[in-house]
Design a protein around this nucleic acid. Structure first.
Length: 830
DNA sequence: AGCACGCCGACT
DNA sequence: GTCGGCGTGCTC
């Protein structure tokens, strides 16, 4: 038998497009029997033979090789950390989302497992001072520094102590003279997270007297008072919460009233949960029918997707639980995805309450160590159910039987960094590969999913009744145009104002909702409600204040700022741009005695502040809660009897094809927050578009009629589910360059399409246009939007692969970075 | 991404 | 001979 050469085909852990390919390494004789696919090894890479971590994707044997091959060095793992299914998943992710191998690998592995190399420099020549040229200033400086650092230092360390940013030449010269030696070391990135805590060192009784001594130190008094209540608190949270300065705290430390200690920071995901037993319920007829219909598919082990379409409270969770039970009985495993772990402790509580042990939780709030621990438990087979957010879809189960995606329509299931995967897409892939079923649940399914349901690709089940007795709230749509006619130019309609007053008087709680995120402003007429739209795109035009014009961000059409309403000739042109902060101020003015809380991205940036606001709302400390879409999800407060949607138009008029769908979902979800207790709730929706189908349908809790209105529009204007979209962002510091490069790419794509006989290239390629926030962090962004109109989707993608992946250096300068979004949820960043 | 290599201009 | 800057091209 001929002697064969064993070759490992690896992906190196180097986050660069140019190294994003398979590299072949010879396997040393001693390792030929131990190395397997999915193991990590250290390879010598590049001219300097820098040691890099690499992942074995494949092992092959060849009799001879006609190209140069290096030998890999040594393995990191003694068994594969990536299994065969995951390798297939990695390849699929790369092809589907056009990402790098390493990015796909990072999806499948918990963060922190990936090691990083370090370059260390050792001093060899102790007598360097006499042997060195007098005038080589840099060399002397470096050697001196190295000596000061004990003759050994990492490259990072050297740079941190030097002012220059390039010592490579100097190092090279010194290495040639054998004054120094350069080593590469791999260091594992295991770090214990610590957090600073403040603690009181004095008795509570003493506080009052001490406070009197702090006459001029308002913040210090506040801190002490806060600590009197809470005893201890993480430093960062305390300062953020009280808007206090570190100096105030330091003053207290130096006076000896408080101490600060460093503690290992490990968040216990179950800290605040009560694990009451959650007994199995008898399903009602509706639930039973659905369970009985899905169960056989669990046993058939064939890929199948189901959609449970039912309002909140219609008993979806019980169906999930009973299906999971069936999966467990069969010896299989299940993944349960929820849109945001922070908002859905109930879900976890229920799964724990029903199944007890054998549950893991995966989400981004876990510390690296914790995440790693949970991941290990799954790999070791100690866990049968994983509950988690988006990334939990990659749970390394071996006997996957079912994937549940609750609130399927939520945009949190779409990843916002590369690869920009959608959890439901990954679920579908795993379902096909591993013979698992997928169960999607939503009261307001995404249009795409419902469409697939109609076509039979997804098995659709509707839960019409509410499982509990509470009834859906009464919804009233207020026409803000009429308010104007009556002379009310305020932000609140008379109706909503009087209802707030009445509910406050009755000591009931109120939620006011305004979805204002992003910077999109639109232009409308106060008298007739007309909104300026692009003639080609059915998309609202965006007001650019600096240029004083209107632009369509889809096709780039520009228009003069209108002086008069193009529809009715009125003079009350409105530049819309109301946000939650402004609302808060206004409401404060109206109701000075009410306690108002605000919940949006700004007020919840601190960890835990989310819960804190909700907690005080729950305890009745807040009368009116003002918030963005954050308050639309899953909150259950029985004392809330009034929900006001300040302006349903904010999301309706966003320049995005999904604006109507988003509005429908939001209004429906928000409306569901009212009347969850014994008293029937009331919902008021303020709008300038009272006749708009998404608002009408939402006010009647009527998904079907929304769907029937929206679908033809998607068809007519070529949007999903009728076409597939690809969104490419070009990002760079010089606007001119970003534009010309993206323009060049657009022309290249069109040229290739044209040459292959696809003549709708002008409809396939949109742009380049500036993105809705055209400048972020001093960088300009332009986007290209592609639609697969009369062209095979695969071909369109192969063009992009050619231009932007395989030959990117030729077409895109290094100064411009790219972001490719396959099947973007939003094209305009809602 | 690193890193080397080549080329240039400047300073000593 | 030394030093720093910058563009280009390669990594099995």
């Amino acid at each position: 038998m001929k002697k064969e050469i064993h070759i490992a085909q690896v992906i190196v852990n180097n986050n660069s497009l140019q190294t994003d390919k398979i590299f072949d390494y010879k396997i040393p004789e001693g390792l030929q029997n131990t190395l397997q696919r999915g193991m990590r090894v250290i390879v010598p890479f590049g001219m300097g033979n820098k040691k890099l971590e690499a992942y074995i994707m494949n092992i092959k044997r060849e009799e001879k090789i006609e190209y140069k091959l290096k030998e890999l060095l040594y393995p990191i793992d003694d068994e594969p950390i990536i299994n065969e299914k995951q390798i297939r998943l990695i390849v699929w992710l790369k092809n589907k989302y056009m990402c790098k191998y390493i990015e796909a690998i990072q999806c499948v592995l918990p963060t922190g497992i990936v090691n990083k190399e370090k370059k260390t420099i050792c001093l060899l020549e102790e007598d360097w001072a006499t042997k060195c040229y007098k005038n080589s200033k840099n060399q002397v400086e470096l050697l001196k520094l190295l000596e000061d650092l004990g003759g050994k230092a990492t490259l990072e360390k050297l740079y941190s102590r030097l002012s220059t940013n390039n010592i490579n030449n100097t190092l090279k010269l010194l290495e040639e003279k054998e004054f120094i030696k350069i080593d590469y070391e791999i260091s594992s990135r295991v770090k214990i997270q610590t957090q600073q805590y403040v603690q009181l060192t004095i008795e509570k009784k003493e506080i009052e007297t001490i406070i009197n001594t702090l006459k001029n130190a308002k913040r210090q008094r506040e801190i002490l008072l806060f600590l009197k209540e809470h005893r201890e608190c993480p430093v960062k949270e305390l300062l953020d919460l009280l808007k206090a300065n570190r100096a105030s705290l330091n003053a207290l430390v130096s006076k000896g009233y408080v101490t600060i200690s460093e503690r290992e920071y490990k968040r216990d995901p179950f800290k605040n949960l009560e694990f009451k037993n959650f007994p199995k319920l008898n399903p009602n007829i509706e639930q039973k029918e659905i369970i009985d219909e899905i169960k056989p598919y669990i046993h058939k082990e064939e890929p199948k997707t189901f959609l449970l379409h039912g309002v909140t409270g219609s008993g979806k969770t019980e169906i999930y639980l009973q299906l999971i039970e069936e999966v467990l009985n069969k010896g299989k495993q299940g993944i349960v995805l929820v849109p945001e772990i922070a908002l859905t402790p109930q879900t976890i509580e229920r799964f724990y309450g029903r199944f007890g042990e054998g549950i893991a939780v995966l989400h981004s709030n876990l510390s690296e160590g914790e995440r790693f621990d949970e991941w290990r438990r799954i790999v070791e087979g100690k866990v049968n159910i994983v509950v988690g957010a988006r990334s939990a879809i990659f749970a390394p189960f071996n006997k996957l039987g079912m994937i549940i995606i609750d609130e399927e329509h939520e945009s949190t299931y779409k990843s916002d960094h590369h690869p920009k995967y959608h959890a439901a897409e990954v679920a579908a892939f795993r379902s096909r590969e591993e013979g698992a079923i997928v169960v999607l649940g939503s009261a307001t399914p995404s249009l795409e999913t419902y469409y697939r349901g109609e076509k039979g690709e997804v098995l659709l089940h509707t839960l019409a009744k509410r499982a509990t007795a509470s009834t859906l709230p009464e919804v009233e749509v207020i026409d803000m145009r009429q308010e104007l006619d009556h002379g009310n130019t305020e932000i609140l309609s008379e109706k909503l104002f009087s209802l707030i007053k009445e509910n406050l008087d009755r000591k009931k709680q109120i939620i006011l909702f305004l979805n204002r995120r992003g910077y999109a402003t639109f232009v409308s007429c106060k008298q007739c409600g007309y909104v300026v739209k692009c003639t080609h795109c059915d998309i609202t035009m965006t007001y650019h204040k600096n240029m004083k014009n209107l632009q369509c961000h889809y096709c780039g059409e520009k228009r003069e700022e209108p002086k008069l309403c193009p529809s009715c000739g009125g003079t009350h042109i409105r530049y819309n741009g109301m946000g939650t902060q402004k609302i808060e101020k206004i409401i404060e003015g109206y109701f000075p005695n009410a306690v108002i809380g605000r919940m949006d991205m700004d007020s919840t940036s601190v960890k835990g502040s989310h819960q804190r606001i909700l907690e005080s709302f729950k305890n009745g400390e807040i009368d009116i809660l003002v918030g963005t879409q954050m308050i639309s999800k899953g909150l259950d407060f029985p004392n809330v009897t009034l929900v006001g949607v300040i302006s349903a138009d904010a999301s309706l008029n966003l320049p995005d094809f999904r604006a109507s769908e988003k509005t429908f979902q939001l209004v429906t979800q928000v409306a569901g927050r009212a009347g969850r207790g014994s008293e029937k709730g009331k919902v008021v929706i303020q709008t300038y578009n009272p006749q708009h189908y998404s608002i009408l349908a939402a006010s009647q809790h009527d998904y079907d009629s929304f769907y029937k209105e929206e679908l033809p529009i998607r068809k007519e204007y070529f949007y999903p589910p009728f076409v597939q979209l690809i969104n490419i962002n070009f990002i760079g510091k010089k606007e001119e360059e970003v534009y010309t490069v993206s323009k060049k790419i657009a022309n290249n794509i069109k040229y290739i399409l044209k040459s292959k006989g696809y003549n709708k290239y002008d409809e396939i390629v949109f742009g380049p246009n500036p993105t809705i926030i055209a400048k972020v962090n001093e960088k300009y962004r332009y986007q290209l939007l592609l639609k697969d109109i009369d062209v095979p989707y695969r071909f369109l993608k192969s063009i992009l692969k050619y231009l932007l992946m395989e030959n990117r250096q030729k077409f895109v300068p290094a100064s411009i970075s790219l972001s490719i979004d396959i099947d973007p949820l939003y094209t305009m960043g809602i």
